[in-house]
Design a protein around this nucleic acid. Sequence first.
DNA 1: TCTGGGGTCCTAGGACCC
DNA 2: TCTGGGGTCCTAGGACCC
Length: 424
Amino acid sequence: MKKIIGLADCNNFFVSCEKAFRPDLNGRPVVVLSNNDGCVISRSAEVKALKIPMGIPRFKIQHEIEKYGIAVFSSNFALYGDMSNRVMSTLGRFTPDLEQYSIDEAFFNAGAVPVIRDNLTEAGKQIRAYILKTTGIPVSIGFATSKTLAKLANYYVKKHTEYGGVLDLTDDEMKQKLLYICPLSDIWGIGKQLYEKLIQMKIKTPADLAASDYIRMGKKFGVNMQKTIMELNGISCYDFIENPAPRKSIMHSSTMGTPSSMFEIVSQAICGHISAAAESMRKDSQKTCCLTIFYRTGVFKSSGDFFSASRSQTFCTPVSDTRILMHSGIRLLQQTWKQGYQISKVGIILSELVSEEHTQMSMFSNTEQTVQNERLMKVIDSINSSDKGRVFFLGQGINKPWSSVRKFQSPRYTTNWNEIIRVK
DNA sequence: TCTGGGGTCCTAGGACCC
DNA sequence: TCTGGGGTCCTAGGACCC
């Protein structure tokens, strides 16, 4: 059976999620901002046409926002996560072998489904239309014999609307054409550093890269470069990952809404991040053997000294209890704290994660106290699952002065009954 | 005034062992 | 006179991705 990989990728995903509930925004320029309303992280087609780049700080485009009437949204990840689930489950109706690669894209095994395999372009268009109708989210679909080429197909078809959102790169002629005309910097796996080194070597197009000596390039740049070159030649090196491996670490961090030099505030921020990360970890039935905290002053401030600190603690017995982690986090903060710095970014990492089942076999974990503690965490998680933040630990503080600013937040249309869309 | 957050994998180099 | 070499493990940092 010929291997054919499909890639479905949502167009301007975060913006599309906002637009799905606001038909009045059709045809209007829209952006979604990062946490703390800092940078542009998603742009509508109209904004791209205005040449406003990805990642630009909001304050630098204030003039354009006013001039062109750009609709601005703070990020609303509860909404995007829910819309992502809807898109993925809709796609799953067409093809069982699905590998969700990120919040807005999934690879699928197109070769295994005869009705798709035998007429890729037409099937792609039907899938696309159905997802749009069911979820309100436009997607692009690329087909190829390797993931890297499927990504390239997607990249191209997003920019060339005449293809109707679907492109079949199993067609050799089309594949060769794209390798010549697409920019090298848009190849999956070629970042800024590699791009510059390749240009110095006079490798200027994906076609040049595909034609290079993969053994020599592999020795020079490592095994991933070797795979990229083979994938550009249609030889698949990255298989489907049907059962994704469990996460190896969980990070939670944020820029504070208002920087602070107070121990108490930074401590509350640390506890807030621990609480969120621990809840997410328990949801995946995992425990951690290592907590790291880190915090620093702003990096863009010209005045004032820079200060940054980070410290870890490892646990002999895997932990999932928020209280133990908070206790440890506060102690790590005390050990590293220095008076007089305006802290603006705070975060924590839970690493060396292990599965709960694995730890249950340990002879140390099943004391009566542990069992009770785990039960308590389950109760808290279940209360908070229906109403986020209803029960919390005092260590996080009550007013949360450290939390991010979100001036342009859209309603939680899909995850909160009080904010559900009203049809008049 | 104002510049995100969450991941993974790979590699080089040091420590250590025999 | 001549002062090894191979292997493993760990860690930090780089690079990439979305």
